[in-house]
Design a binder for these strands. Sequence first.
DNA 1: CTGAAAGCGCTAACAT
DNA 2: ATGTTAGCGCTTTCAG
Lengths: 343, 343
Amino acid sequence: MYSEKEVTIYDIAKRLDLSATTVSRGLKDNPAISKKTKKRITDVAVEMGYRFNTFASNLRSKRTNTIGVIIPRMNSSFMSDVLAGMEKVANEANYNLIISQSLESADKEAVNIKTMFNNRVDGLMVSVAYNTNGVSQFEMLLQKGVPVLFFDRTLDHPMCPGIIIDNQKSGYLATRHLLDQGCKNIIHITGNQERNVYSERQKGYESALAEAGIELNKDQTFVTMLDEQAGIDCAEQILKMSPLPDGVFVDNDNCAANCMMKLMDSGIKIPEDIAFIGFNNDPISKIIRPALSTISYPGVEMGQIAARKLISHLNGQQNINSTNSIVLRSELIVRDSSLCNRL
Amino acid sequence: MYSEKEVTIYDIAKRLDLSATTVSRGLKDNPAISKKTKKRITDVAVEMGYRFNTFASNLRSKRTNTIGVIIPRMNSSFMSDVLAGMEKVANEANYNLIISQSLESADKEAVNIKTMFNNRVDGLMVSVAYNTNGVSQFEMLLQKGVPVLFFDRTLDHPMCPGIIIDNQKSGYLATRHLLDQGCKNIIHITGNQERNVYSERQKGYESALAEAGIELNKDQTFVTMLDEQAGIDCAEQILKMSPLPDGVFVDNDNCAANCMMKLMDSGIKIPEDIAFIGFNNDPISKIIRPALSTISYPGVEMGQIAARKLISHLNGQQNINSTNSIVLRSELIVRDSSLCNRL
DNA sequence: CTGAAAGCGCTAACAT
DNA sequence: ATGTTAGCGCTTTCAG
């Protein structure tokens, strides 16, 4: 595989007439080594083209300084923000990140967990797939003392904290905003109710309706995959409804945008006929016309907090198990798609 | 760190009164082991809670079965497709992927390359950052015989093939399409001309203008970061131009969409006043109104081909150095944003 | 501040 | 079809 022979700390040691131990320490800013020796070591290391062997180190020290991350997909601006936040904190604390996608499949997620397990990650941060069922797949990690932390889409487990937003309140705020605009017949396009993020938002939707004295109608909650196709399909369903709804709350901006455009292409006026609000504050919400009202939540911060929490546990500064969940702030952003003012 | 003591192949060997070698082979589908023994081994392994130690294996075998991927960002639908393609091929060939983002920074990219190097990736696939300069940062890998392959945003190096589309032709097609619609005063919003993807598209733009007998005007080429802000900034610049351009070709759909919306917000009619065409066939191009004409290119396929190429080299089936580049098909997609028909 | 010795868990090479 | 031996390159432990 490799054309040149690898340089080891023994080669450096021989050259400098030192022991391998000293070289190892010198390469690592160990305080027991004098500045002078340290400099000689690093200089020769560079000169000889030495590269650190992570495997030997990990094998010996039984620590990998690696944190695993499993997410449904990386192609959303929210996830991209989360990862950026995690990476920053991890890098600063000298941890590497291994990132893998479940592509919304519980099976693929289970494989990813296993791979992370075999790769001996020091800890794991997960936002679970659409159809994940139960938490048993994490037991092997927990039994070996590998901490697991959930963010955004969480599971309930006494050992695993979750970093979340208040989805119920956000769902309430979104629905309440439509009600305040005079909507009386509001659809909620949501996802698998096993996922906290969607069931909580549904609860918020329901409580806002209840507060306004509007009876809950099960046909007005659409459980979907929340992808582009779902947006289009929902639009078609909505067009068949009679009377038409006068407001739509969608748990994902991308899905909302697709739904909205399809309706507009069919002659529906937004927000005059139907008011819209999405979720995530994805860049797309600012670009479409009418601009999409939405709920904003802080991806970068969520990633940073998750990583910080996990790393402080790994470093023994703070036990993760004492935390149940950390709730971040979310915010209603009003744009044209919901400003119908029917009152 | 770990609460239980790790089970090794020696533990399994002792329990079954076999040698560690046999256990190692049995765990690996080595044909030299009888089915019966194999089954006994795997059963006991599961029972004892054995987990394979990647580090010991890598240390000994000097192979990691890991391929590194460095990309500018993962938050685009194109990159997401590329990664999905790579992951599929890699998984099937029993390779793992380590993915990292340069966030368009050459410095961060250099750090990533170093990390990949230390992690002893068997090979590396890279789409370079916006401002990457030269190829020297890859030399350390190449010197150790680690193959490097570029995709989409490539660098010129005799040892490193590139998987690309014909950017010049695509730029030509986009510009030519605007010309065919009767545009005579066409802006090209592009990126760093050191990047093949942008300089080639610029060449295509220039050749289409030349063919139409239109003189090239340097002020009509905007070199930008091609992000959302750039789209807005360009719109502001365009509004100050006199006469206004009648066509805009943008090297990125997201930037194009932002530019277009800003212009429309300022009263410009698209495509009547200014025709627009983007690049990438990002989902956003289908959602905005008018729908954005664009150039489509196959992300999943690009990822698959890149991974296949690299892996067949690693497996010794095909030498990578004999290939200079592989060019995939790209395609003009006409939507409403460019249908002005001024002829 | 530095060193000697041992061993992390696996697999390659060479037996049998 | 299975076993023996040795060693991958590092860090830990104990000793100076």
